[in-house]
Simulated assay, not measured.
Amino acid sequence: MPEGRFTPAKLRRVLAGTCARLGLDPAGARLLRFTNNAVFTLGSAPVVVRIVGSTKLRHRVGTVVRVAEHFARNEVPAVRLLAGLDQPLEVQGYLVTVWDRVPLTGPPPTPADLAGLLRRVHELPPPDGLAEWEPLVTVRARVADAEDLSSDDQRFLIDRCAEIQDRLDTLEFPLARGFVHGDAHPGNVLPGPDGPVLCDFDSSCVGPPEWDLTPLAVGRERFGDPPSRYTEFAAAYGFDVTRWPGFAVLRAVRELKLTTSVLPILRSHPPVRAELRRRLADLRAGRTGTAWTRYR
C-alpha cells in the first residue's frame, strides 16, 4: 500500500519546520487531534500548531484566519492566532496556522454555554468575503482527496451528495440567515480560565443558523449522547431544530460530513477504517437508529 501523506515522520518534520521558523522547540509536542487537520500542542511554549490535512480543502485555511481575526476584533470568546505572524504559514508544502494555547482550567463547558456562544456569533455580522453555506462541497472534496476509497464507495458518496442536495434545495428555513460557526459541536468549545471559548472555524460561512443547532441533536441520535444535553442546549438557544420538518435533511448532511471527515487521511491513520466501514454500511442500508463511535 502506498504511504499516506500524513505519516508520523512527515507530521513531525512539518512541526519541526514550523517551530524552527518561529524560534520554538518542538520537543515534547503532543498530537491532540488528527482528522481533517493535525493539531499539536507544544511542550515548550503555550502554543498550538495546526497542519491542514486535505489538499482539496487548503482554501479553508483562509476562512479560519479571517474568522479568527473577526472574532478577536469583536471580542468573541474564541481561540486567538499567535500575534505578529502573517498567517497561514507554508511549511514544506503544508499550510499551517499557529495559535495561543488556551489553558484548560475552567469548568467543563455546558450545552447552555455553547448555545450562548452561538447566539453571539449569529448576532454578529459576518466578516467580509465569507463564503456561502454549501456543506456538500467539502464532502465532494474529501471524496476526491481520499487516500484509499473504492470506486464503488466513491460512486455511492457522490450519488448520496446529489440526492441530499436535491432535498436541501427545497428547504425553507425559519431563522434569519447570517454568520454561522459551521461545526458547532461540544468538542469545539474549550474550558478557558475566563469562560468557554470557541475553536475550529474551517466551516464558518454565511448560512442558516439551524445548521449550528444540528450537531448536538445528531450527537443524541447517532452517538448516544444524553438527551438532557440537547434539551438544555435547545432551551438555552430558544429554538428546537428537531421540531422543524427540515431537520431530517440537515441530519443527513451532518451524518455524511461526519462519515467522510477522515477520507483524506485513511492511509495515514488506519485506526479510523473500521468505524468508517460501519458508517458507510449504515448509510447504504438507510439505518438511522444504529449507534456510531466517534473517530479517534
Rank of each mutant, 00 (worst) to 15 (best):
A162M: 12
G289W: 05
R251N: 02
R279S: 14
D282A: 09
R101E: 07
S203F: 01
V249T: 06
D152G: 06
G93N: 10
R254D: 06
A234V: 07
A112D: 00
L250R: 02
N36M: 12
W244N: 01
R13C: 15
H122W: 15
L95M: 03
T110R: 12
P127W: 01
A131R: 03
L11R: 13
R222L: 10
T41K: 14
L149A: 08
G207I: 03
D202S: 04
P135E: 05
I51C: 04
A291D: 14
T231A: 15
Y237Q: 05
V249I: 06
A236G: 02
Q92D: 14
L114G: 07
P270F: 04
R58K: 07
R287S: 10
P208W: 09
F40C: 12
F6N: 13
P107H: 04
E123R: 15
K10W: 15
R278I: 02
Q165R: 09
A83C: 09
A144Y: 12
G289N: 00
G286V: 06
R222F: 09
R278Y: 08
P196F: 04
A281D: 13
V61N: 07
P108E: 07
P186G: 14
F233H: 07
V64W: 08
P209L: 13
N188G: 03
L283A: 14
L22V: 13
V76P: 00
T290I: 02
P8Q: 09
R177D: 10
H269D: 11
F40L: 14
P8T: 10
S54E: 08
H70L: 05
V262R: 03
E172W: 04
E147G: 10
G116Y: 13
L15I: 11
V262I: 14
L198Y: 00
D25T: 13
